[in-house]
Design a binder for these strands. Sequence first.
DNA 1: TGAAAATTGATAATAATTAACAATTTCTTA
DNA 2: TAAGAAATTGTTAATTATTATCAATTTTCA
Lengths: 252, 252
Amino acid sequence: MKRERIEEIADLLNKRGRLTLEQLDDFFPNVSQMTLRRDLLQLEQQGRIIRVRGGAMSVKEVQKVSGEPYAKKSASNADAKLRIAQKASNLIDAGCSLFMDGGTTAMCLAKEMPDIDVHVFTNGLAVAIELSQKKNVSVTVLGGQVIKDNLSTASPVAKDYFENTNFELAIISASAFTPDIGFSCGSMIEADLLKMARQKAKTLYMMLDSSKIGKIMPHTFARLEDIDVLITDDDFPNDMKELFRQKNIVVM
Amino acid sequence: MKRERIEEIADLLNKRGRLTLEQLDDFFPNVSQMTLRRDLLQLEQQGRIIRVRGGAMSVKEVQKVSGEPYAKKSASNADAKLRIAQKASNLIDAGCSLFMDGGTTAMCLAKEMPDIDVHVFTNGLAVAIELSQKKNVSVTVLGGQVIKDNLSTASPVAKDYFENTNFELAIISASAFTPDIGFSCGSMIEADLLKMARQKAKTLYMMLDSSKIGKIMPHTFARLEDIDVLITDDDFPNDMKELFRQKNIVVM
DNA sequence: TGAAAATTGATAATAATTAACAATTTCTTA
DNA sequence: TAAGAAATTGTTAATTATTATCAATTTTCA
C-alpha cells in the first residue's frame, strides 16, 4: 500500500521532473496531503528526491545537465504528453522494431517505455540516452548534424541508411496539424526524415496533443489519411476525432 | 556589490552543498534576509542552485550523488581527466573541424571546450548533448547502435560515412596502453571506428591518464608512433614520456 | 548634477510545513 | 482467530517560511 504509492511517486517524479503537492494530490485522490508529505520525506531521506517549497523534484532530473533548453521545453503541456505516452507505451509489444522521433512527446514515451525486448531507431539524442537505461531495449541512433533546440539529428544521408533498415512501427509526433494541411513541423530536413520513416513503417502511430490542432508549420510530412492510429488526449475535439474515424483511423 | 555577493553565495553553496538562510545570514551580516532570498531566487533562475525550504542547495552537489552507471564511471580519476581535458581544450582553435570519441575523458573535454566556431564529429551521445549547449559549436553524431555502458554509438557503416567527411584533428582516448601493444579498448567495433578516425585526421591527439598505463584491452587501434600529441597528467612516468619523445611525439 | 532605474529593508499578508494526537489499518503471536 | 502492538493515516492547530508591498536608499548614466 504505502510502498507501492511511494514507488509510484518516485516514478512520477522521474518522469515529470518536478511536481507540486497539489499535482500529487490529483494523482492520489484517496490519500491526504499529509500522507503524501510523509512519503516525500521518506523519499528524500533515501536521497531519491529533493523536497522544494510546494512539492518535490527528482534527483535524476537535476543530474541531467541543468539549464538545458530541452528540459525547459518539455514542460509545456506535460500532462497531456504523459497521458499520450502512456497510451502509446501500451501498444508496444515485445519483439518488435520501431522508429521514434526526437521530440518531447517521444521523450515522454521513452520514459514510459516498458523494459521489454524491442529495437528502437531514433534521431533523438535524449530519447536514445533515456532508452539506454533499459536493459532489454536496444537502440540505434540515426547519425547527422545535431539540431540544438530539440537535441535530435538530421542528415541528408539518412535516406541511404533507411534503405537497409526495417521496422514495423513508427511512432512519431507533429508540431502542428490541420485537416487540410496535415501534420507538419518546422524543419525541412526533419520533415524529410519523418516522411521516410512513415513510408518505411508498416504501421504509423501519430501522437498529437490537442494543443497542436489548428497550427501550421512550414513542412508537411504526412496527411491525415497517412496514419493508422492517432493517439491523443481527452481535450481532443470530437468532431475532429470523427474526421479521423471516417478514414478508418483508430483514435485513442 | 550585488553581483559579487551572488557569486559568493554560489561559491559558498558549491563548497558547503547546502545552507540555511540563517547560515547565509551569518555570512552576510550587513544585508537583510530578504536580499539574500532575492539573490537565491536569481541563482535558481540561472539553474545554479535549488531553493529548498529553509535555504538552498547547490546543483553541483546534487549532481555528485549520482546513481547512473555513466556518471559513476566518469568519477574515476576525475581530477586527472579534468586536467587533461583542460590542456586539450587549449589546443583547439576556432574554425577547425575535429573528431572526438564518446568516452569519459571526451566528456570532460566537451565540458571544457571553449564556445568557439568549430565543428565536432563524435560518436558519444552525452558528448553531443553537452556540446550542443554551446552556441558556436556545431555537432554531428555518428549513427549506429548505442553501446549502453558508455553511451556511444558504433556502426559498421561508419566507414562509408567517413568517406565524405573531413576533419583535421582527432582527439581520442584509450582504455589501455602499453608500449608494445599500443593503445587499446574493449570493443572491436569501437576500435574500428577509432582506427578510421585516426587515419582520416591530419593530426591525432591522444588523451591518456596515467592510470591506463600497463593495461591491455582486447583491441588495439593505434600504435605508439601513430599519434602526434600525447596529453596526460602529472603522474605520467618520465621514462614513458621519453619513449614518446624519441618518436617525435609532443608530450604535454 | 538630477532624474530614472535598480537595489534594499521593514512590515504585513499568504502559504507551506511541521507537530500533535486521535482514528484507523495492518501486523504479530499467543 | 482474537487481542494487543505497531504502523499508517487524517485532522486540526501551531509554527515557520515565503511572498507581496511599498517606502527608503543607493546606483547609474545622460
